[in-house]
């Protein structure tokens, strides 16, 4: 087998295994760390698809940013000591129905889509092309996303200042 293939299966296995562990683990913090392995595995798969910029973004945003926020949330919002986070299974029937439906839809989409198959070729300069596309063809979504993030930040600041002001009055 070619090295690429071996690596592909290795990283797929890591991703799927970690994802499964994340879902089935009873400990929330273990789930979060399993999510990390899954995200790193996905980043590695991106690399194998020659999407290096996307892979690095995946690492920086998901692993280095969002996952840390998740962990922070898990650890800081606890009432007691952070160790005994047990997940409980609720709404078994609706959840399995929903996920079965989602699975069927995804498989349907996967089978019926007319996938474009092309030879993998190393793009010479991903960053340049990405930048050109973002600033050219996709300028509107880019700006909209930027505005959305700005609104979110302003909202977060407002909420925190409001809360801290209330606290100060309370004290």
């Amino acid at each position: 087998m070619e090295l690429t293939t071996i690596l592909f299966y290795l990283f797929s296995l890591i991703t799927l295994g970690a994802a499964a562990f994340m879902v089935f683990s009873k400990n929330i913090v273990h789930s979060a760390f399993a999510l990390m392995f899954a995200l790193i595995g996905v980043a590695a798969l991106y690399v194998l698809l020659y999407a290096d910029f996307l892979a690095a973004t995946q690492l920086l945003v998901y692993v280095g940013g969002i996952l840390i926020l998740i962990l922070f949330g898990v650890m800081l919002t606890s009432l007691g000591y952070t160790f005994n986070f047990k997940t409980v299974t609720v709404n078994l029937a609706p959840a399995s129905l929903l996920s079965a439906t989602a699975a069927v839809l995804l498989i349907f989409a996967f089978v019926t889509t007319d996938w474009k198959i092309s030879e993998i070729a190393e793009p010479t300069d991903t960053v340049y092309d990405l930048g050109m596309l973002l600033m050219g063809d996709y300028i509107l979504p880019f700006i909209v996303a930027g505005v959305l993030l700005l609104i979110a930040i302003i909202g977060a600041i407002l909420m925190s200042t409001h809360l801290s002001a209330e606290n100060r009055e309370g004290v």
């Binding site: 920086l60 280095g64 960053v127 340049y128």
Partner: peptide, 19 residues
């Protein structure tokens, strides 16, 4: 060609290992 970006992305995993 994503040099520095890759570097910053990979080092962000450091944080996670410390947690």
């Amino acid at each position: 060609n994503i040099g520095v970006f890759y570097l910053l992305a990979v080092t962000s995993v450091l944080t996670l290992s410390i947690i």
